[in-house]
Nucleic acid binder design. Structure first.
Lengths: 188, 188
DNA sequence: TAGCTCATGTAACTAGTTACATGATTTG
DNA sequence: CAAATCATGTAACTAGTTACATGAGCTA
């Protein structure tokens, strides 16, 4: 969804080749975002075409040559712009891409200046409010439609359990957002 | 990912038009799965081409005509096959499609006979084990890499918070799967 | 010598989003 | 009279997956 921006953040931390990026997206980043090498190579090419990154071919003796990508000025501008822009993700409570989008922004906030840090904070606050409202809706629905869950059977039980999935996911998102806000507030 | 199967389940409960399905995927199903009407119309056409559903055009006086879709024998066979097949989803801990795939299977298990019910139960158990293992990995990583989270700042803090996102999401998935297993065990 | 790591790619496909288009009826 | 509901679609696009392809060097 915003894989180019996720790559921009990762390359801001350290320049690297497509192969190295693929390993990052399979390692420490994998808990919020997975991406295959095919997807990364393709994205890097369009990013280079757009001037967001510059490429340097590094010739190696024992290993194949590699292309090392570095964030350009235009890439830094784009990153700052994106950090300040509202979230664009979508999806159901269970598979919501806004949460991972926020995680990437959080990770990259340091590379967009002071304005970006506070903009991202604002987005966390806004997302928290949205999530809380959704969770309230779910809880209301739960109370009115399933007042006695222990007695449910068949498809009513299944519908209830599906709703519970949304509630668990929503709760987890809320807890996480709160943890983020606490962490960003305290150490100041 | 398995939208055709999610539609098969919904149509097994009650036959309906594309428009009605779109409303279901925007209402009670939306907490685990969202789908637009465009996607649903397209999918219904291919499902009809594949013989999974049959179509009846219902002429209406005050409203536009509608096409009502009903699950065919081939559709029922396909549903039973899919219910028994292993999960095919993927994704990171935060945006994992296996969870929603399981939710749909759970919902549809009743339409695939006794074999399907126990097959789905097995998949819940397997998924629970996978999730628990992943969560353990995350906790291990947390302990070794971030022993003192309160002291973190900058990008180390951000990396820690991203990991916490994976942990929250994993925990929620585990809790949900446990709730499902309890609900399916007790009322028997 | 079999399999893994490093390194980059093409091609075909599946899944999902956004924008555009039409038109009658019902509700506020 | 404006907006929502009912009802179906096309087209273009973005995102992501799966399969295939190549080839050197290093490790068990």
């Amino acid at each position: 969804m915003t894989l180019p921006h996720a790559i921009l953040v990762s390359l801001s931390e350290r320049s690297g080749s497509g192969y190295e990026l693929a390993r990052r997206f399979d390692g420490s980043i994998a808990d919020v975002w997975t991406a295959t090498h095919q997807q990364i190579y393709k994205t890097l090419r369009t990013m280079a075409d757009d001037g967001w990154v510059s490429v340097t071919t590094v010739v190696q003796q024992t290993r194949p040559d590699k292309k090392v990508y570095t964030v350009s000025d235009a890439g830094r501008d784009e990153l700052a712009r994106w950090l300040a822009a509202p979230l664009t993700g979508s999806g159901s409570a269970v598979t919501d891409t806004r949460i991972r989008e926020l995680a990437v922004k959080l990770h990259g906030a340091g590379y967009g200046g002071a304005a970006a840090v506070s903009a991202v904070r604002d987005q966390v606050v806004a997302q928290r409010a949205e999530r809380a409202a959704l969770l309230d809706t779910y809880h209301g629905f739960e109370k009115t439609h399933f007042p006695e869950p222990a007695r449910l059977t068949g498809s009513a039980l299944h519908r209830y359990l599906a709703l519970r999935g949304g509630i668990h996911a929503g709760r987890a998102a809320l807890d996480w957002l709160d943890e983020i806000l606490t962490a960003l507030r305290d150490p100041a």
